[in-house]
């Protein structure tokens, strides 16, 4: 590892400036559970590491029925899954935030870091997509908002231009008869990168028998987490039953374009997308029904 400068700004303005000055030679540091390993492994050569944990905007954390869920980019996972409001309103965020790494990692790791790291396997990203989250970005030219499904552009690559920082992810308020869930498959029971993962949400009608709309996202089966538009659309107007679930799972499998690697084969991953999508949809529907 080569020498670099470490700075810890306390305002968003300073942070953006410090990032912009060094362009691609600056990197943000949130929990450090990805970036420190990558720096040590020689993946990046940087001049400056900008610690973003002392910036007020990035530490926002609020959750309510009326305003939705705001997760500042520096908020650690444990705060998310320990919040009783998040547990009540956004159980799918608990599903994913609580299985990243182990206890120690959850004390440092952030959803913001997970998203910016843009790994195809990032475990909080499918849920963010399923929950229609928006990413708030600040940069030298001001602030902008991007839907999470557009945030990641390739493995390890994202929308952020030089000097830009992720401020927060914002999940819209949940309506009645809405439910979401997340599952991941790993060979062990903890400490693994997803072989495949899946997040999904469903909005049921008042009878709770029909699906009004749905969002399905799958991970570790393509260059980025994939928002499965056709699978999602197939559920709009469909009955909330096994046949619809089967059809959506088959469509999700078509959206997957995995590779063979040490974590799984193409065949295994496509198979798992089917299994996980079905299981996740069953949980999401059951949550939407208030079961």
């Amino acid at each position: 590892m080569q020498e670099f400068e470490y700075v810890a700004p306390t305002s968003l303005e300073d942070a953006v400036k410090l990032m912009a000055e060094k362009g691609p030679k600056a990197k943000a540091l949130a929990g450090g559970t990805d970036i420190l390993i990558q720096l040590r492994g020689g993946r990046y050569q940087i001049d400056r590491l900008v610690d973003v944990k002392n910036i007020p905007e990035l530490n926002q954390f609020s959750c309510s029925q009326s305003d939705g869920l705001t997760i500042g980019a520096s908020v650690q996972n444990y705060k998310i899954y320990e919040s009783s409001e998040v547990q009540r309103l956004y159980p799918a965020m608990v599903d994913c935030a609580s299985l990243v790494g182990g206890i120690q990692v959850q004390g440092r790791a952030t959803v913001g870091g997970n998203l910016c790291n843009a790994a195809p396997s990032g475990d909080t990203i499918p849920t963010l997509i399923a929950e229609s989250a928006q990413a708030l970005i600040a940069g030298p030219n001001g602030q902008r908002t991007v839907p999470v499904e557009e945030f990641c552009t390739g493995p390890g690559r994202n929308q952020l231009a030089d000097g830009e920082l992720l401020v927060s992810v914002n999940l819209p308020p949940v309506k009645p008869n809405y439910g979401a869930a997340f599952l991941r498959f790993i060979p062990r029971n903890e400490m693994d990168i997803a072989v495949a993962n899946c997040g999904a949400s469903v909005q049921l009608d008042e009878s709770r028998q029909k699906i009004v709309s749905a969002k399905i996202a799958i991970g570790s089966v393509g260059p980025t987490v994939i928002y499965c538009i056709e699978a999602s659309n197939s559920l709009a107007g469909a009955d909330a039953n096994e046949a619809s679930i089967e059809a959506a799972a088959a469509a999700a499998q078509k959206a997957a374009s995995p590779i063979n690697d040490m974590r799984g084969t193409v065949e295994q991953r496509i198979h798992l997308v089917g299994v996980l999508t079905k299981r996740v949809l069953r949980i999401a529907i059951s949550r939407a029904k208030g079961e």
């Binding site: 060979p187 062990r188 903890e190 974590r263």
Partner: peptide, 29 residues
């Protein structure tokens, strides 16, 4: 029995040379 193996790529690189991907059991397993 369940997960450990040197995962060699075609050129003989051990692709999983870390405890993340060389999967020894954890207490939860």
């Amino acid at each position: 029995a369940l997960n450990e193996e040197y995962f060699f790529t075609e050129d003989g690189t051990m692709a999983n040379a870390s405890f993340l991907d060389y999967r020894m059991p954890t207490s939860l397993d």
